[in-house]
Structures are given as structure tokens and as C-alpha cells.
Design a binder for these strands. Structure first.
Lengths: 357, 357
DNA sequence: CTGAAAGCGCTTACAG
DNA sequence: CTGAAAGCGCTTACAG
């Protein structure tokens, strides 16, 4: 590609400003429509034509303007993250995963925190999507479990993927985190250690994961011949404070449990707090298991045995689905909850009180 | 505004599809240019014309298409957050603040985590901004302190605001968090309690806040006639692990300090850990002060006395600056670091070893 | 497999 | 204070 000295109208002149599709077309000696075909990976381009165009694109470092594409295409090259989980670590990990998955795609990530209980929830969500004509959105729990939100996406024709602990929609719209399996892991770990009197603090009923984590836990307990008596099951709110309160209640029971499974790390940290206030040592007097493996799990004392949730990996899969890539699930196990053993669990010190239930 | 029954060409027909600037112009009986003036708050519109147009806009629920505006204007209606602070709580709080500040502006937030040490750092940043033609970016520490990044913004003509602990640029490009004042608060609190042998664990030198927090601390200590001996000043990395290590070193000194100020909560939590491993009780044997007041501060035991940083508020101010709104600084004090006293500080138990230095 | 025309919904000069 | 023209950089039908 020779640069003509100062011929303003020379067909091979390389522009100083940001190159456009017209520059590429001119330099490659084709119409802009054909360049457009290459950009959009259309199969209807002869391979030598394609190569020539790609060479010019590479030489000029051309990148199509997403705004112009979007305007003509009717959709912005923007993916939205719609979330209401207040846990910062969850949000950031999810964002990193989404970013991982869209790297090199030309899409950008826009974020939309929301509140399902707000009277303007649906209107805000609709405005967010329609204003910028988003290409698609990823919904995460618990807003991903809200059928009104899913219906809105379908109504306005916005592509969407729901991340949830269990399938709630047709497969192309779902990424399942399978929290139930994590509950099972927690149960097996405590059963293996020899615990028989085990308490459980659930999340709020507004999160489907609350149900799944509990079900998996109870299921696997039953398989080991253990039960989860009603009196040992309390409802928390996935918050530190609720962990303290519910933990205290469980530990003040006449026959207190020798182990507690709290359905997330925040509550497990609260249980640690309650135990300390009651003068109990962990793990000697009480084993505690959390769920998530967020930073707090390794910051509290003793460090929490917990269930790791691969949030970032899940995020990567979710955008992949949205962008229509085939699932890049090289290591399917890496997207499942898994047990992380730390210092908050041990065999029960005292046996013989008799398992209740 | 009467809807004509079925006159396809009736000038007052209301469209079923999303209304455009042409619909508004037609219905209001003006040119689209005049509608554009109203959208862009131009002063050159007669007020009755303006009111008529605004009425039609309200009636149709018209919102200009940001992509079309952006294409014509040469810039997207998108604000970027460029960050490298790995703390999830900082990131989320900052995002919420930015979102607060841009609500109703028609702008959307796109996020760009980065790594100053990556060889592609500047190229990635440039691509991020130029690809979508961002309207502007907010840079947060420590990338906000990188002169290469600031120069890049200036070079490519991208509006930017740098959030940093101290001014590093012309006023229109700066939001200062004034961490030095927080350091002062920490010093006064410990001095008021009667501590004289005080240790300090700094952040890494790559963060300007490390210097500011230390300077403020030392300054206020000196004002009280106290000193911060070299041997009591250790460099940490703003991480939990570095807090454990540096904390242990300070506590194993022949004359150990009766109080430690760690320059962030993560490290302060690490100091708590180190103290526990050495069998020290807090606050009886050792007072600990952190910085940030992130969630971890109230999750560890005992809950940390710390310096609250109003990150969300700072974020709100930063976009306001970027969007050219006058600073909405109703309560200037609310954007300053402030002391939060919890359970990790008390008067020193043992006096009389003599202050060192 | 390739192209000329029209259009996406706005804004920027330029007139008046 | 208001408007007609041209253009931002792409893509969608429609031809060939």
C-alpha cells in the first residue's frame, strides 16, 4: 500500500483521522457493503476478497463505530447487567466474568442495580433497556427469579439470560448455578466429621437459592440417615445481623446443635460472632459452614469452611450465551459449587447427648 | 391534541412505534432543529415554542435516541469508570455514586477495570475510550494517579475527572478525598485515649493515599507532642495478609506499641488476626484503627474503629463535575473522611514503659 | 458473490 | 429566534 505524496484524491490515500468503512472500501477496492459483510462475518464473501479487506483493516487498525452500527442495526452494542444482590463481592465478580466473556467482541458492559420492591422497578428497567436499545441483559439473583422482569424482556424483544440456582426458563435463557449441589457438599462434610445434631439458617424466601441450598443440604443429610428437625431450621436474611440473631437462637436451644450450616458467608460470620458472645469455641464446641467463599470467609476468625461459588465463571458463560457463542464449558466442574475446608469445622467434641429428631 | 381517526397523513397523527424527533417536530409544528434545541437546552428558543414542544415530548414520552445523538455529536452518551482498586466494596460504592450523579441525565455507565502494570494498559485504555467514543471517564486510585493515563485523556480529547487523595491536576479535573484529614482523625483519637507508643502500617507506595494517610497521622501526632519512630512504621500492601505480617512484626518488637493504625481496614483486620495469634486481647492489650469503614470493619471481632470514606458521595461529585453541573456540595463535610469509633480501641492498659523516640 | 440506494435519528454549520 | 440541507458511519432490503 503506497502512500501517494499529496494527492488528495488518490484512491490509496490513508486518512489521518479515524478510518471509516469508506476508507477500507476505497483502499481494498470494494464497496462498503462488502466491508460490512466482512465485519459481520457474513459467509457470502469470496475468501480472497475477504483476506484483502482484512489486511486493510489490520493495516489501518480499523474498528467499526459501534454507534453507527447500532443506529443502523437498531440495537446498541451494549450488554446490561441487572442486579439486586447487595453483596459487593458478588457484583464485582459477576462483572469481571461478564467482561471476560465479552472481551474482543466489541461490546461494552453497562450496569443497572435495581430494587424489585420499588414501585418504579419495571418502568426503570424498561427505560434502561429501551433508552439505549440494549443488545441484551444478564439478570442475576434475585431479580433473575422475577417473572415480571423476564416477561418484560420478552415483551420488548430484548435478549436475556437469567442466572439462577435452578432452571426457571427455557434452556437458552438460563445459566444454572446448581446451589443444591453446594448444599449437599456441606451436608456430607458435616456428616463425615460425625455431626448428628445439625442446625441450619436459611436465606430469605425471596431468593430461590435459599430453597435450593436447604433442599440439597437436607437431601444429603437424609442419605446419611440424618435428619434436620424443624426446631433446628431458622430463617435468616442473608445478612450478618440475621446470622448473629439466628445463631444465638440455635445456640441457646436446650440441646444446642454441634454444627450449623448458614446459607451464606455473611450469616456464617454472624454465627461466629454469636458463638463468641456465648463463650463457645470454634470449632471445638461448634462447627460452622458458610456458602459463597467470598473474602469475608477468610478474614474472620477462625476462617470459614464454606462452599465456593464460581461467580466469575458463571458470568463468563452468561454473556457467551447472550452473544450466541457455543458454551465454552471446557471444565464443566469448574462452574459447580465446591467445598473449601478451613478452620471452622471439626469433629464434634461431645457425643452421646443423642441426636434429636 | 386530537387524534385523527385514520388519516395516515394527518399532521397530528401519533405514531405507534417509538417516537422520533420528526414526530415531535410534526406534532409541535416546528422543525426538528428547534426540537433539537429544546433537547439540548439551547437558550435560543422562544419560551412559548419551548413549552409547546415540551408538552408534546411529555405526551409521547419521547426520549432522544442516544446512539443517533452520539453519532451526530461525535461522542457517545456514556461515562466510563476506570479503576484498578481491587476492593469490591470500593468499586461498588463508587459505581453507585456515579449512578446517583448521572440519574436523569440520559447517560449510562460503562466499567473498565485495568492493571497499570500490564504492558497493554495504555493501549487497552485508549481502545476502550475511542472504540465507543466515550463522553468522559472517571479515574479512581491508583490509576487516577498515573500521569500517563491523564496525559492520554488529554491527548485524545476525552473529558476526565481524577479522584485522588490530593490534587494532582487542574481543579476541573480533580475530586480530592483528602485522606490526610482521616489520618489526622486517627491520630487524635489514639492520642486522646492516652496512647504514646503507636505503630503504623502504611499502604504500598504505588497509592498516593499511603503517603497522605501517614502524613496526616504523623502531623497530628506531632501536634500532640507525640512522635512516630521509624521502627514503628512498616510498609504494608493494603492487603489482609500484609496486615497479619506487619502486625506480627510490630507486636514482636521488644517494646511493642499499645496501638496500631493500619492504613486500611483489610490490614487492620490482619492486625487483629496477628494479635490473636500472639495471645493479645483487643482492645485491652492493643488498640487498632483501620481506614475505609468497609463492611469488613463491622464483621471482624472486635468491630474496628476506623475512618469512614464517603466513596459513594465522592462518586456522585465526580460525575457531576464531568457532566458540567455545578458542584452539588450541600454538605461539604459529608465528603470528608470521618472517625467511626467501635470496639477495637481503648485507653492503654499499661503505662509507664515510657514512650519511645 | 458483490454493489448502489436509501435510511437509522439525531446534530452541525450556515442562512435568514 | 427558527429552518432547510448535509452529514455522522454504519446496515437493511433490493438488485444483479
Amino acid at each position: 500500500m503506497n502512500k501517494a505524496p499529496r494527492a488528495q484524491d488518490d484512491a490509496s490515500e490513508i486518512p489521518r483521522r479515524r478510518p471509516t468503512i469508506n476508507d477500507i472500501a476505497r483502499l481494498a477496492g470494494v464497496s462498503k457493503k462488502t466491508v460490512s459483510r466482512v465485519i459481520n462475518a457474513s459467509p457470502f464473501v469470496r475468501s480472497d476478497t475477504r483476506e484483502r479487506i482484512e489486511a486493510v483493516i489490520a493495516e489501518l487498525g480499523y474498528a467499526p463505530d459501534p454507534q453507527a452500527r447500532g443506529l443502523a442495526y437498531g440495537r446498541a452494542f451494549l450488554i446490561g447487567l441487572v442486579y439486586d444482590n447487595p453483596n459487593p463481592q458478588y457484583v464485582v465478580n459477576m462483572q469481571l466474568g461478564l467482561l471476560d466473556g465479552m472481551r474482543g467482541s466489541g461490546f461494552e458492559l453497562v450496569v443497572h442495580p435495581c430494587d424489585r420492591n420499588s414501585p418504579t422497578f419495571l418502568d426503570d428497567l424498561r427505560a434502561f433497556i429501551e433508552r439505549q436499545r440494549l443488545f441484551g441483559v444478564v439478570l442475576t439473583p434475585s431479580v433473575s427469579e422475577d417473572e415480571r422482569a423476564a416477561k418484560l424482556m420478552a415483551d420488548i424483544g430484548c435478549a436475556y439470560v437469567r442466572v439462577a440456582s435452578v432452571s426457571l426458563d427455557t434452556p437458552e435463557h438460563m445459566i444454572e448455578t446448581r446451589d443444591r449441589l453446594g448444599g449437599r457438599e456441606a451436608a456430607r462434610h458435616l456428616a463425615d466429621l460425625g455431626h448428628t445434631r445439625i442446625g441450619f439458617i436459611s436465606g430469605p424466601p425471596t431468593f430461590r437459592s435459599s430453597y435450593e441450598r436447604r433442599s440439597g443440604f437436607e437431601e444429603a443429610l437424609n442419605e446419611r440417615g440424618l435428619t434436620l428437625p424443624k426446631a433446628y431450621v431458622l430463617e435468616g436474611g442473608y445478612t450478618f445481623e440475621s446470622g448473629i440473631e439466628r445463631g444465638r437462637e440455635l445456640l441457646q436451644l436446650e440441646q444446642r446443635p454441634t454444627a450449623i450450616f448458614a446459607a451464606n458467608d455473611e450469616m456464617a460470620a454472624g454465627v461466629l460472632q454469636a458463638a463468641r458472645q456465648l463463650g463457645l469455641s470454634i470449632p471445638e464446641d461448634l462447627s460452622v459452614v458458610g456458602f459463597d467463599d467470598f473474602q469475608i470467609a477468610s478474614r474472620v476468625w477462625p476462617a470459614l469452611t464454606t462452599i465456593r461459588t464460581p461467580t466469575r465463571e458463571i458470568g463468563r458463560l452468561a454473556v457467551g450465551r447472550l452473544l450466541g457463542l457455543e458454551d465454552d464449558d471446557r471444565d464443566p466442574k469448574s462452574r459447580l459449587p465446591s467445598l473449601v475446608v478451613r478452620d471452622s469445622t471439626a469433629a464434634p467434641k461431645t457425643q452421646g447427648f443423642g441426636a434429636s429428631g
